[in-house]
Deep mutational scan, measured.
Amino acid sequence: TFELKGKVGKVVKIAEDHYLVEVEGDKWIAYSDEKLSLGDRVMVVDVDGLKLKAKRIP
């Protein structure tokens, strides 16, 4: 999973306390310091076990 750092994905679902992000065809649980919206493009900035930390990108 460490190779996911720096990869770009898309928010495909918003849950109460996390997001579901699709990166290279796989879906991952993600969290972010900022509020994300459905369809936002994100970059993986860190990997915490099986969770990704994501940041919105333009």
Results as ranks from 00 to 15, higher is better:
residue 1 T to R: 15
residue 1 T to G: 15
residue 1 T to D: 15
residue 1 T to Y: 15
residue 1 T to V: 14
residue 1 T to M: 15
residue 1 T to A: 15
residue 1 T to K: 15
residue 1 T to C: 15
residue 1 T to P: 15
residue 2 F to V: 15
residue 2 F to W: 04
residue 2 F to A: 15
residue 2 F to R: 15
residue 3 E to A: 02
residue 3 E to T: 01
residue 3 E to N: 03
residue 3 E to M: 02
residue 3 E to Q: 03
residue 3 E to W: 07
residue 3 E to G: 02
residue 3 E to F: 04
residue 4 L to F: 03
residue 4 L to Q: 14
residue 4 L to S: 07
residue 4 L to P: 15
residue 4 L to M: 14
residue 4 L to H: 03
residue 4 L to V: 15
residue 5 K to P: 15
residue 5 K to L: 15
residue 5 K to W: 15
residue 5 K to C: 15
residue 5 K to F: 15
residue 5 K to Y: 15
residue 5 K to R: 04
residue 5 K to G: 13
residue 5 K to N: 15
residue 6 G to I: 01
residue 6 G to P: 00
residue 6 G to C: 10
residue 6 G to R: 00
residue 6 G to H: 02
residue 6 G to Y: 02
residue 7 K to P: 03
residue 7 K to L: 06
residue 7 K to H: 04
residue 7 K to S: 07
residue 8 V to E: 14
residue 8 V to F: 07
residue 8 V to H: 10
residue 8 V to K: 08
residue 8 V to A: 06
residue 8 V to W: 05
residue 9 G to T: 02
residue 9 G to A: 08
residue 9 G to D: 00
residue 9 G to I: 14
residue 9 G to M: 06
residue 9 G to H: 01
residue 9 G to Q: 00
residue 9 G to S: 02
residue 9 G to R: 00
residue 10 K to E: 12
residue 10 K to C: 14
residue 10 K to L: 12
residue 10 K to I: 09
residue 10 K to R: 10
residue 10 K to A: 13
residue 11 V to I: 05
residue 11 V to Y: 00
residue 11 V to K: 00
residue 11 V to S: 00
residue 11 V to G: 00
residue 11 V to T: 08
residue 12 V to A: 06
residue 12 V to R: 06
residue 12 V to Y: 07
residue 12 V to H: 06
residue 12 V to N: 04
residue 12 V to D: 05
residue 12 V to G: 03
residue 12 V to I: 10
residue 12 V to T: 10
residue 12 V to S: 05
residue 12 V to M: 08
residue 13 K to C: 10
residue 13 K to F: 11
residue 13 K to G: 08
residue 13 K to T: 12
residue 13 K to I: 08
residue 13 K to S: 12
residue 13 K to E: 10
residue 13 K to W: 12
residue 13 K to R: 10
residue 13 K to Q: 11
residue 13 K to Y: 10
residue 13 K to A: 10
residue 14 I to T: 10
residue 14 I to H: 07
residue 14 I to N: 08
residue 14 I to A: 13
residue 14 I to E: 12
residue 14 I to D: 10
residue 14 I to Q: 09
residue 15 A to P: 04
residue 15 A to W: 13
residue 15 A to L: 12
residue 15 A to T: 14
residue 16 E to K: 09
residue 16 E to G: 13
residue 16 E to W: 11
residue 16 E to V: 11
residue 16 E to L: 11
residue 16 E to R: 09
residue 17 D to V: 10
residue 17 D to K: 10
residue 17 D to L: 09
residue 17 D to C: 09
residue 17 D to S: 12
residue 17 D to T: 10
residue 18 H to G: 13
residue 18 H to Q: 12
residue 18 H to S: 12
residue 18 H to P: 00
residue 18 H to N: 09
residue 18 H to W: 11
residue 19 Y to G: 01
residue 19 Y to Q: 03
residue 19 Y to S: 06
residue 19 Y to K: 01
residue 19 Y to V: 05
residue 19 Y to N: 03
residue 19 Y to T: 06
residue 19 Y to I: 04
residue 19 Y to F: 07
residue 20 L to R: 06
residue 20 L to N: 06
residue 20 L to I: 13
residue 20 L to V: 09
residue 20 L to K: 07
residue 20 L to Y: 10
residue 21 V to H: 00
residue 21 V to Y: 00
residue 21 V to S: 00
residue 21 V to M: 14
residue 21 V to E: 00
residue 21 V to I: 14
residue 21 V to K: 00
residue 21 V to A: 04
residue 22 E to T: 10
residue 22 E to P: 00
residue 22 E to K: 07
residue 22 E to G: 03
residue 22 E to Y: 11
residue 23 V to A: 03
residue 23 V to C: 05
residue 23 V to M: 05
residue 23 V to F: 04
residue 23 V to D: 02
residue 23 V to L: 13
residue 23 V to I: 14
residue 24 E to Q: 05
residue 24 E to K: 03
residue 24 E to S: 06
residue 24 E to M: 07
residue 25 G to V: 05
residue 25 G to P: 03
residue 25 G to M: 06
residue 25 G to C: 08
residue 25 G to I: 04
residue 26 D to T: 14
residue 26 D to M: 14
residue 26 D to C: 13
residue 26 D to H: 13
residue 26 D to E: 09
residue 26 D to L: 14
residue 26 D to V: 11
residue 27 K to M: 08
residue 27 K to R: 12
residue 27 K to G: 09
residue 27 K to H: 07
residue 27 K to E: 11
residue 27 K to A: 09
residue 27 K to T: 11
residue 27 K to D: 10
residue 27 K to W: 11
residue 28 W to S: 01
residue 28 W to F: 05
residue 28 W to G: 02
residue 28 W to Y: 14
residue 28 W to N: 02
residue 29 I to A: 11
residue 29 I to N: 11
residue 29 I to P: 13
residue 29 I to Q: 13
residue 29 I to G: 11
residue 29 I to E: 13
residue 30 A to S: 13
residue 30 A to H: 01
residue 30 A to Y: 01
residue 30 A to F: 02
residue 30 A to P: 00
residue 30 A to Q: 02
residue 30 A to D: 00
residue 30 A to N: 01
residue 31 Y to L: 14
residue 31 Y to V: 13
residue 31 Y to P: 01
residue 31 Y to G: 11
residue 31 Y to W: 14
residue 32 S to L: 04
residue 32 S to R: 04
residue 32 S to I: 12
residue 32 S to K: 07
residue 32 S to G: 05
residue 33 D to K: 07
residue 33 D to Q: 08
residue 33 D to A: 07
residue 33 D to N: 07
residue 33 D to M: 07
residue 34 E to W: 04
residue 34 E to R: 04
residue 34 E to Y: 04
residue 34 E to T: 06
residue 34 E to I: 04
residue 34 E to H: 08
residue 34 E to M: 05
residue 34 E to N: 06
residue 34 E to C: 09
residue 34 E to P: 03
residue 34 E to D: 14
residue 35 K to S: 09
residue 35 K to R: 12
residue 35 K to Y: 11
residue 35 K to T: 11
residue 35 K to E: 12
residue 35 K to N: 08
residue 35 K to A: 09
residue 36 L to Q: 01
residue 36 L to E: 00
residue 36 L to H: 02
residue 36 L to I: 05
residue 36 L to V: 07
residue 37 S to P: 03
residue 37 S to N: 12
residue 37 S to L: 11
residue 37 S to T: 09
residue 37 S to H: 12
residue 37 S to Q: 11
residue 38 L to R: 08
residue 38 L to V: 09
residue 38 L to S: 07
residue 38 L to G: 05
residue 38 L to Q: 08
residue 39 G to T: 07
residue 39 G to R: 09
residue 39 G to H: 12
residue 39 G to Q: 11
residue 39 G to W: 10
residue 39 G to Y: 11
residue 39 G to I: 05
residue 39 G to N: 12
residue 40 D to E: 05
residue 40 D to H: 06
residue 40 D to S: 05
residue 40 D to Q: 04
residue 40 D to N: 07
residue 40 D to W: 05
residue 40 D to F: 05
residue 40 D to L: 04
residue 40 D to I: 05
residue 41 R to E: 14
residue 41 R to K: 12
residue 42 V to W: 01
residue 42 V to Q: 00
residue 42 V to S: 01
residue 42 V to P: 00
residue 43 M to I: 14
residue 43 M to P: 00
residue 43 M to E: 15
residue 43 M to S: 05
residue 44 V to D: 00
residue 44 V to H: 01
residue 44 V to Q: 00
residue 45 V to F: 02
residue 45 V to H: 03
residue 45 V to T: 08
residue 45 V to R: 01
residue 45 V to I: 08
residue 45 V to M: 06
residue 46 D to Q: 03
residue 46 D to N: 03
residue 46 D to V: 02
residue 46 D to F: 02
residue 46 D to W: 02
residue 47 V to P: 02
residue 47 V to L: 04
residue 47 V to W: 09
residue 47 V to C: 08
residue 47 V to K: 05
residue 48 D to P: 01
residue 48 D to V: 14
residue 48 D to Q: 09
residue 48 D to L: 08
residue 48 D to N: 06
residue 49 G to P: 04
residue 49 G to E: 13
residue 49 G to C: 06
residue 49 G to W: 04
residue 49 G to H: 08
residue 49 G to Q: 08
residue 49 G to S: 05
residue 49 G to D: 13
residue 49 G to I: 05
residue 49 G to A: 07
residue 49 G to K: 06
residue 50 L to D: 14
residue 50 L to I: 09
residue 50 L to T: 10
residue 50 L to H: 12
residue 50 L to W: 14
residue 51 K to N: 08
residue 51 K to I: 13
residue 51 K to D: 04
residue 51 K to W: 06
residue 51 K to Y: 04
residue 51 K to C: 11
residue 52 L to N: 01
residue 52 L to C: 03
residue 52 L to V: 13
residue 53 K to I: 03
residue 53 K to V: 02
residue 53 K to C: 04
residue 53 K to N: 04
residue 54 A to H: 01
residue 54 A to V: 15
residue 54 A to W: 07
residue 54 A to L: 15
residue 54 A to E: 01
residue 54 A to F: 10
residue 54 A to M: 15
residue 55 K to D: 09
residue 55 K to E: 14
residue 55 K to Q: 13
residue 55 K to A: 14
residue 55 K to L: 04
residue 55 K to S: 06
residue 55 K to R: 06
residue 56 R to N: 05
residue 56 R to K: 11
residue 56 R to I: 07
residue 56 R to E: 04
residue 56 R to Y: 11
residue 56 R to L: 13
residue 57 I to M: 09
residue 57 I to P: 03
residue 57 I to G: 03
residue 57 I to N: 06
residue 57 I to W: 08
residue 58 P to G: 09
residue 58 P to H: 10
residue 58 P to F: 07
residue 58 P to W: 07
residue 58 P to T: 09
residue 58 P to A: 09
